[in-house]
């Protein structure tokens, strides 16, 4: 068996308050769903765009006072919705499945 190096994913996770976490989960559910459908349809790069949008919320959370409050989370999500527009995709299969 080859040697494995452990990863500490939790250490890089931004801290969120309970309400902020709920808000985040609610917001991201649709993107997770779309990403899953895109992957099933074979379009992994489009799923990558969606995941990038979700991850940009996390990236902004790291720069906020920890743990991130609900007000900050609302602000971040509003900003991401406004500025991270997903480019138009001309793929009828993905448009139908997502």
């Amino acid at each position: 068996m080859a040697t494995l190096i452990p990863l500490d994913l939790a250490a890089f996770e931004p801290k969120l308050t309970h309400e902020a976490q709920e808000r985040f989960d609610r917001w991201r559910a649709i993107y997770d769903d779309m990403a899953q459908h895109c992957r099933q349809a074979g379009d992994w790069s489009w799923a990558g765009e969606l995941v990038y949008k979700v991850a940009s919320v996390r990236r902004m959370c790291r720069k906020m006072p920890q743990p991130v409050s609900l007000e900050h989370m609302d602000m971040i999500i509003e900003l991401v919705n406004e500025h991270h527009r997903l480019p138009v995709k001309h793929n009828p299969v993905v448009t139908l499945t997502a």
């Binding site: 994913l9 890089f12 899953q36 992957r39 995941v51 979700v54 991850a55």
Partner: peptide, 17 residues
């Protein structure tokens, strides 16, 4: 490094789901 962990974690969560 944080970016990398984010990407890997998203994929791990997807694979777990």
């Amino acid at each position: 490094t944080a970016d990398f962990h984010d990407s890997l974690q998203e994929m791990r969560d997807y694979c777990r789901k």
